[in-house]
Simulated scan of single mutants.
Amino acid sequence: MHFIITDASLAKSRAVHLSGARLLAAMVALSLVLMLSAAGLYHWVFLKGAREGWPVIGALVRLVVKDEFEQRDRFMRENLDAMARRLGEMQARLLQLDALGERVSGLAGVNFAEFKSTAGQGGALVSGRSLSMEELQATLAELEQNTGQHVDMMTVLESRLIDQKVRSMMIPTQQPVSDGHLGSPFGWRIDPFTGRSALHTGMDFQAEPGTSILAAAGGVVVTQELHPAYGNMVEVDHGNNLITRYAHASKVFVKQGDLVKRGQKIAAVGSTGRSTGPHLHFEVLVQGVPQDPGKFLAAGRHLPVAKGAAARAKAAEGTDG
């Protein structure tokens, strides 16, 4: 394409030649300039109209802003409703924890009602209605407080249960022989050596020589000696002035100062000391006073079956003093 440019008097002229590529580039450049100009003008007019409240532009701006706010509000409402549902589920689980805590507190010996009144409780239960942000924040704060109180409560219950477990392990309720049957029970009987009535301060378990003698509870060995009457004897201190005594053993597998666990093998059945046959003489002493071991063993459901008449019939058989 050729262009001829002349001045007013036609005295001078100039020819301009544009190829196809140059013409296309010029048109693209012109289009870009026009687009940028239009965009700038539109932006300027739109902003000016929005600031000054021109009727058409102001209405358009309000419509756009309203739609944007509605979308944002709808998004927030959906999220608030989802959080409220989750909060309701958490509160329901806290109610389940309350029920569980009430059952466990009975085992731990804790008055659950008094504990809750001391710790305090509260918090509006989340219902099906929509909550505002302020209500949701307040409920979350109360839920956090209640959760902390439940943690404290469960910690107390755990401590009580552990303490009870430890105490129960220190009470002699474990059967002290692995394989044997009851001979002479605790109480008054005819002494097999003197033939006179005498207090039998323990229980006799008849068993084969070498039968395992087990610690009736955990504790510390305070005595391990050869006694004139009790023969090879072991005494275990369980704390709280409670001691168990195991007598007439053929062998002893612990020494003074040893820690023993419930059910641990500490000796073997024999017939040493003042004895007429192989058996274990088992005593329970509280503050040095002999107690009926049968009551302790019965508490642990380890007491061997021995009907009253049969047990007394064996009292005159080979037992200790």
Rank of each mutant, 00 (worst) to 15 (best):
L10Y: 04
L10N: 07
L10P: 02
L10H: 04
L10Q: 05
L10W: 04
L10K: 00
A11T: 10
A11E: 12
K12P: 01
K12S: 07
K12T: 05
S13M: 04
S13Q: 08
S13A: 08
S13E: 03
R14W: 14
R14P: 03
R14M: 11
R14S: 12
R14L: 12
R14N: 11
A15N: 05
A15G: 06
A15Q: 09
V16L: 05
H17Y: 14
H17C: 10
L18Y: 06
L18P: 01
S19Q: 04
S19R: 08
S19C: 05
G20T: 06
A21I: 14
R22F: 01
R22E: 03
R22K: 11
R22A: 02
R22P: 01
R22V: 00
R22S: 00
R22C: 00
L23C: 07
L23Y: 11
L23T: 11
L23H: 06
L24M: 07
L24S: 10
L24Q: 05
L24D: 06
L24I: 14
A25C: 09
A25E: 05
A25I: 06
A25R: 11
A25M: 07
A25H: 06
A26H: 10
A26G: 15
A26L: 13
A26W: 09
A26Q: 10
M27V: 10
M27P: 02
M27F: 10
V28S: 05
V28N: 01
A29M: 09
A29V: 08
L30K: 07
L30M: 13
L30D: 09
L30N: 10
S31W: 08
S31G: 15
S31R: 14
S31V: 15
L32W: 06
L32F: 08
L32M: 08
L32P: 02
V33N: 01
V33W: 01
V33T: 12
L34W: 06
L34F: 12
L34T: 14
M35G: 12
M35S: 14
M35V: 15
M35Y: 11
M35A: 15
L36S: 13
L36H: 10
L36R: 08
S37P: 00
S37I: 02
S37R: 00
S37L: 03
A38K: 01
A38T: 15
A38Q: 09
A38Y: 12
A38V: 15
A39E: 10
A39S: 13
A39V: 15
G40S: 13
G40R: 03
